[in-house]
């Protein structure tokens, strides 16, 4: 059986614009038939905390404020759509979770699991990898 093309997106930045770009590409790829693995680590991970999203503690540059003002569906909405309508899997980095002493329940429910680099490499084998 032919394998579907795979895309791996590594999100590292806390900037709303970068999270949005990564989530947008990941969700469109997922809805276009690709298998997508998103791996969130370092400063990006804090933006996936429920409290940060509820309180809208986003870090914006030039485009971000307009995304918010025009009420464009944000990165977590795009990722949810990618999961619901395609084959997208969202993971949080184990190192960042441990260092920050965060719990999985503190992250949005779309996070499927907490994984280390080796597990990520296993999933991403043969995939195109984008780091944002």
């Amino acid at each position: 059986m032919e394998q579907t093309p795979k895309l791996a997106v590594v999100l590292l930045s806390s900037e709303l614009e970068k999270l949005h770009a990564g989530a947008l590409m990941g969700s469109v790829a997922s809805m276009s038939g690709m298998t997508v693995y998103m791996f969130v680590s370092m400063d990006a991970l804090e933006q996936f905390r429920k409290d940060v999203i509820t309180e809208k503690r986003f870090k914006t540059g030039v485009v971000g404020p307009m995304l918010l003002e025009k009420e464009v569906p944000l990165f977590y909405d795009l990722i949810r759509q990618g999961i619901e309508l395609g084959n997208l899997h969202l993971y949080a980095c184990a190192l960042a979770m441990d260092v920050m002493d965060w719990k999985k329940e503190e992250l949005i429910d779309e996070v499927e699991g907490i994984i280390g680099v080796n597990q990520f490499f296993g999933l991403a084998e043969g995939a195109q990898i984008m780091t944002i």
Partner: peptide
């Protein structure tokens, strides 16, 4: 809606 909103709506409907 902004990109990829229209595409997402289309994909949902096509399903």
């Amino acid at each position: 809606t902004y990109c990829p909103g229209p595409l997402m709506e289309l994909i949902k409907t096509l399903k």
